[in-house]
């Protein structure tokens, strides 16, 4: 039996360690499509998090009642019900946002983050852990969308959340609000986040080697380093 992770860890791992967008590369379609502005990204992330949390909760509650063969279909029906709720609420209360996001609100059904968490986590864990895991992943998705939306909105239309942040003298980069900009910004962000992780890992490794040298340990093989977890 593996050591039980703490409840806090269940939440925080979604923020960075297994960030759904940058690490698991799930839910790329909405990430690219709706991040023309920050507000769209926030709306999309909130809608997705709502669906994610509630479908994780329900799936983890009924996980023992669903026969294994039809579980995917059952999950999809549960998810689709919550997406319908979000879609109808958005249409009634936030018409502008609903129009801006277009078919991407109904498309939350096929967002792989939700089915992925259902299959990988909620179907195996209790309700409390499932909700925390879902919240963590939702917040991770939120962070990713705000970063993407922020970069694209500031450079593409000089504004952040609708407020002008760059002077009029700055020529807006039209490419940022075009589809091409979405792909390029996302690719660069993912590359830089890989680079950061790599750099951090190397630093830890070097620190450990230096420490071993100081205590006079002679051979520092790869096995020794692996044991120490770097």
């Amino acid at each position: 039996m593996k050591k039980q992770v703490t409840l806090l860890k269940e939440f925080t791992k979604g923020l960075w360690e297994i960030n759904p967008t940058f690490k698991q590369i799930l839910g790329t379609c909405p990430t690219l499509a709706v991040t023309v502005s920050v507000i769209n990204g926030i709306a999309m992330a909130l809608a997705t998090t709502f669906v994610l949390v509630f479908s994780s909760l329900i799936i983890s509650l009924v996980r023992k009642l669903i026969p294994n063969q039809v579980r995917i279909a059952a999950y999809i029906v549960i998810i689709a019900s919550f997406v319908t709720i979000v879609d109808l609420v958005m249409k009634a209360q936030f018409q502008d946002l609903s129009k801006a996001l277009g078919p991407f609100i109904p498309l939350i059904v096929v967002n792989c983050i939700i089915l992925g968490r259902a299959e990988a986590f909620a179907s195996k864990n209790g309700p409390l852990r499932s909700v925390l895991d879902a919240l963590g992943n939702g917040v991770g998705f939120f962070i990713a969308l705000v970063i993407m939306g922020g970069i694209r909105e500031v450079l593409g239309s000089r504004t952040f959340l609708g407020y002008q942040v760059l002077p009029n003298g700055f020529e807006p980069w039209l490419i940022m609000i075009l589809p091409a900009g979405a792909f390029i910004v996302f690719g660069l962000l993912m590359g830089f986040s890989n680079m950061y992780v790599e750099r951090k890992k190397n630093l830890e490794r070097e620190a450990l080697i230096a420490q071993y040298r100081r205590v006079g340990r002679e051979e520092i093989t790869d096995d020794v380093l692996k044991e120490a977890g770097v």
Binding site: A180, F183, I184, G187
Partner: peptide, 13 residues
């Protein structure tokens, strides 16, 4: 994935 996305951006252009 990162370079694929960047190439996709150029393709979109």
């Amino acid at each position: 994935a990162p370079i694929t996305l960047i190439v996709a951006g150029i393709l979109a252009l």
